[in-house]
Design a binder for these strands. Structure first.
Length: 358
RNA sequence: AGGGCUAUCGCCAAGCGGUAAGGCACAGCACUUUGACUGCUGCAUUCGCAAGUUCGAAUCUUGCUAGCCCUG
């Protein structure tokens, strides 16, 4: 009997080809689209954008039909609200800068979707991520860089557990983006030319400030002062949740030269402003650590760390300074270490682990 | 209400008789499965107001208005 795999289909090219490839490889494939935030009515109006909204259902259904696999829509709105949207809001209220995609992967895609898939008899779930999963000689599973450096998505997957990885397939990690589109065209998939997704899927208008207002109401931090590193007040700000480390735009500060946010102080409701050179730092500390290629970090070691999705990676030395807390010292200064964002450590092409910057 | 100085885009600021530099801010686009960063493009038919000199003025003259400084 063939192994059964549930493919999370967003309606985009990547997950569509993932389903197609698995089907060709002989798996018993089931297509599933997660309904996570959009209302049915809104979903119809969606044009493009988020990875997980829109005409997703229509497109995914057509692809499933083209490939010849059963297709379902599963409702994960509650799980998404609790683990992604609420987390997103709470972090911003605390002056942090969250990464909702990481939370979505860890708790919705790889927890809710995986569990429900197992319940209906699946052996694996699969996604259209540009990454590979391999079992190492130490018996641990680890995410490995996609063959295409230009479209590597390992950063957002560092938080997956061993159990989750053991039940996951990422069939397109072996290909280049161009190849994927080519396969989609050759297979006659109706979404071959659809644009890549981007931005926060549950905030279609990109206005996360008003989203926070709707979600948190008067819990949103009030206006306060922009100050310099020496404490001088240089103007009013809209509330700490409007800013992030390294930000330049939207400050409405005409200082004659560009200025940037260097620090956010929730306790005094102040946002510290400085020069571009002031936003560079040499070290950081993270918690909520998840180890992937290794079981634990005993001795300090040299790795490559990414401090944001698009970061190319910087050499650094990591050491465990206490339970669930790692200190990372870079060889050279890195720009805008931002609390709330994830640091992901790489051992060569493999994800060693990562944590949340504090 | 004596004397002096200054009034150019939201902020700063070039210009000194020949038909409005630049920076910051701001906007749009690109980039991007987070927030940012970055790049590109745009952004004063007009120079406090009024009159005059001149072929031609933001640039010269006069008056007015406003702000700043000094002396009462």
């Amino acid at each position: 009997m063939n192994k059964k795999v549930v493919v999370g289909m967003s309606g985009g090219v990547d997950s569509s080809v993932a389903a197609y490839l698995l089907k060709k490889q002989g798996y018993d494939v089931i297509g599933v689209t997660m309904q996570i935030w959009q209302d049915e009515a809104e979903a119809v109006k969606e044009e493009n954008g988020g990875c997980c909204g829109l005409s997703a259902v229509d497109d995914a259904r057509r692809v499933a039909e083209a490939i010849g696999i059963p297709y379902y829509v599963m409702n994960f709105k509650n799980e998404f609200k609790k683990n992604v949207m609420d987390y997103f809001v709470e972090e911003y209220l605390k002056g942090k800068t969250p990464n909702p995609c990481i939370a979505c992967n860890r708790y919705v895609k790889w927890e809710s979707l995986l569990n429900r898939s197992l319940e209906i008899g699946a052996d694996y779930i699969a996604t259209g991520h540009y990454a590979r999963i391999e079992k190492l000689t130490n018996d641990r599973y680890a995410i490995r860089n996609s063959v295409t450096a230009a479209k590597d998505q390992t950063y957002a997957l560092y938080n997956l557990t061993q159990d989750q990885l053991s039940k996951t397939l990422m069939p397109i990690g072996e290909f280049e983006k161009d190849t994927i589109r080519k396969i989609a065209v050759e297979a006659g998939l109706p979404v071959a030319h659809k644009a890549d997704s981007q931005d926060i899927c549950f905030i279609p208008d990109h206005n996360y400030a008003s989203f926070l207002e709707r979600e948190a109401g008067d819990r949103v931090p009030p206006p306060g002062n922009f100050i310099t590193q020496t404490g001088a007040i240089i103007g009013p700000h809209l509330g700490i949740s409007h800013y992030t480390i390294g930000q330049r735009k939207g400050l409405h500060l005409a200082m004659g030269h560009p200025v940037f946010v260097t620090e956010i102080r929730p306790d005094t409701n102040e946002v510290v402003i400085g020069e571009n050179s002031d936003v560079f730092s040499r070290e950081l500390i993270c918690d909520n650590v998840n180890f992937m290629s290794i079981e634990d970090l005993k001795d300090s070691r040299k790795v490559i760390a990414k401090i944001r999705y698009s970061h190319k990676g910087s050499l650094c030395t990591i050491e465990k300074i206490e339970q669930d807390k790692i200190k990372c010292t870079f060889d050279q200064d890195v720009r805008a270490v931002t609390p709330g964002q994830a640091v992901v450590f790489y051992d060569g092409e493999y994800v060693l682990g990562g944590g949340t910057i504090v």
